[in-house]
């Protein structure tokens, strides 16, 4: 019952957010310079030809009218037709989405596999060499640009060592470098948070009282302390999903990954208004959904949290 009410509330709030996103996306694209009609026509096109093309695309109508007709279609499940590809936006997006989803998911997995153990060890072995290494890793990971890091990876593993392919979509070898690049900032944040949370939790009374019950050290670390220390990490990971989707735009470009990111860049370059709007809307919807899921997951792990 409580869950149903929570979901309903969240659904309404999400719709409100998406409505806001649609307005912002719509107006931003139109404020930005560049005319899709001009880009579609040859350079020596006449004024009249441009006018005609604009009329065909509906760009000659007032902006408010354009928005209302666009939203009317969106509410009926029609995201419109891409100007450049001449294909429905939903088709284009859902063809590219799996590649990005795959990349993001693997990026999250790799970065958590690295950062959770590192954060735990740094937290319990504070002040040791491992801890210093972890802090250094977090510092570099958070401050290094993904573009630069991606290029360094390509240079080392792709060019010098020749172990991994530098471009393209395909098997595990292809996804490794882009996923590591994409997940780097997330792993840095998780290491930093888990390190301090683990340290703080180990100072808590309830950990001393667990020791006083004769429970072994590692059981305390990995069970009784970790569950507490992981709570903020879950929140942050959820919020970082937005960051990852944004990062995918850059990382996909570097590694020639045929996902949503590449599509976004192409759409922006071509001033493909309907496609840009649709991508932003879908991405926002994914972000909102993931955050709702994280909130639900949170209440499962932390009994103090109630859904409301």
């Amino acid at each position: 019952m409580a869950t149903a009410r929570f979901l309903l509330k969240r659904l309404l709030a999400s719709l409100l957010v998406l409505f806001g996103v649609s307005i912002i996306a719509f107006s931003l694209i139109r404020i930005a310079p560049g005319n899709p009609a001009m880009l579609m026509l040859p350079e020596n096109a006449t004024e009249e030809q441009i006018k005609n093309t604009e009329a065909k695309m509906g760009l000659d109508k007032p902006v408010v009218e354009q928005y209302l007709s666009y939203m009317g279609n969106v509410l009926q499940g029609d995201l419109g037709v891409s100007i450049f590809y001449n294909e429905t936006c939903s088709n284009l997006i859902f063809k590219r989405l799996p590649a990005t989803a795959q990349l993001t998911l693997i990026a999250v997995c790799i970065s958590l596999i690295i950062s959770i153990p590192l954060g735990i060890i740094a937290g319990i072995k504070r002040g040791t060499g491992v801890d210093f290494g972890a802090v250094l890793f977090a510092l570099i990971g958070q401050s290094m640009s993904q573009v630069w890091f991606g290029l360094l990876l390509i240079l080392l593993f792709g060019v010098t060592l020749g172990w991994l392919p530098t471009q393209g979509y395909g098997g595990f070898k292809n996804i490794l470098m882009p996923a590591i690049t994409l997940g780097l900032p997330l792993s840095a944040i998780v290491v930093r948070m888990l390190r301090s949370d683990m340290y703080d939790v180990m100072q808590e009374d309830y950990i001393v009282s667990t020791y006083a019950k004769g429970i072994g050290q590692w059981e305390i670390y990995l069970k009784y302390a970790l569950k507490n220390a992981l709570l903020p990490v879950i929140t942050v990971t959820g919020m970082q999903i937005g960051q990852l989707l944004a990062g995918a735009i850059i990382v996909e470009q570097i590694f020639g990954w045929p996902g949503l990111g590449t599509l976004t860049v192409q759409a922006i370059n071509m001033r493909d208004f309907p496609l840009i709007q649709s991508i932003l809307l879908i991405t926002a919807a994914i972000f909102v959904t993931v955050n709702t899921l994280v909130d639900i997951l949170y209440t499962v792990i932390d009994p103090r949290m109630k859904l409301n």
Binding site: D205, Y206, Y211, A212, K213, I215, Y224, N228, D302
Partner: peptide
């Protein structure tokens, strides 16, 4: 480990902080 909680056990001062909140 065999002594703690078994042969000698302890009741802590602050019941609000000495129980693990997520178990």
């Amino acid at each position: 480990a065999d002594m703690r909680g078994n042969k000698i056990s302890m009741i802590f001062q602050n019941p609000l902080t000495s129980l693990n909140p997520v178990f």
